[in-house]
Design a protein around this nucleic acid. Structure first.
Lengths: 146, 146
DNA sequence: TATTGTTATACTCTATAACTATA
DNA sequence: TATAGTTATAGAGTATAACAATA
């Protein structure tokens, strides 16, 4: 249905969007004293509550070893602590400090704010046209990757 | 105009799109023996023709030191060579080998193919609704980052 | 003096493999 | 035996700073 050149133009703009979005979010994270990977851990910990490093490894899709490094860095910077697991002495429960809690809530606020900035002023018809196409592309991509 | 929760849902799906797109492209690159950063250099070199490392540093938005590392890796793997600059003995011209040329063309083909897979089967109205919203979001984002 | 690309050093993120303590 | 998390080691990407060769 769609011309190849037109499709390519759309893909290029989608890729530009991913780059700019990454830049914008990295800017926020730097202000919060977080890198992308550390923020991802904070985000998931906020979603899951106090968690073992195994659980976090699965949530982030990285090895347990990578979690050790991220938790070390977040501990050094005062965002989280390692607490003993109440029923398994092999495991630790990664837990927010007050500062970590505040940072997680700030990420949440930044996220809402960004959503508002990107879409808040859009007309309903433009917005729904966009999300309709977006869902179609997402469905295609999930199919390609499965 | 748009509800905050709806906007957030759209942002989440855009972020999911960036992740899946990254996964899909990384899969192609691995097949070509390239990492993301090295492929980016190959892509720009294809666009620019034989270039100094300074030029590539500006094109990729990284420091000259990072280019040294990428060119070292691409040279070791047979994608590019460092040729003397004809008029400036300080500089080198990074130049494709036959293999590098083939890889660049393969990236181009993969790119078109991905565009076709994502958008090719889309109805014209869905496609144009999508690109209209996409352009609006891009414009917003450029504004935010400027 | 300024520029090109390098070496030196450091930080971040990631992986695999071997190991310790515990289950 | 299996699991949780560590140490050891390695590779990739990036940055700043000091330096050599050349402009």
């Amino acid at each position: 249905m769609i011309d190849v050149q037109e499709a390519r133009g759309a893909l290029d703009r989608v890729l530009e969007l991913t780059v700019l979005l990454g830049d914008d979010m990295a800017r926020d994270l730097e202000r919060r004293g977080l890198t992308g990977s550390r923020a991802h851990l904070v985000w998931e910990l906020h979603r899951l509550g106090p968690s073992t490093q195994q659980t976090l490894a699965e949530a982030l899709g990285v090895t347990p070893r990578a979690i050790t490094g991220l938790v070390d860095a977040l501990t050094d910077r005062g965002f989280v602590t390692r607490e003993p697991h109440p029923r398994d002495r092999r495991a630790t429960l990664v837990t927010f400090t007050k500062q970590g809690e505040r940072a997680a809530k700030a990420l949440e606020r930044d996220h809402f704010q960004l959503a508002g900035r990107l879409f808040g002023d859009m007309s309903a018809s433009t917005f729904h046209g966009f999300t309709r196409g977006l869902d179609a592309v997402l469905a295609r991509l999930r199919e390609l990757l499965s």
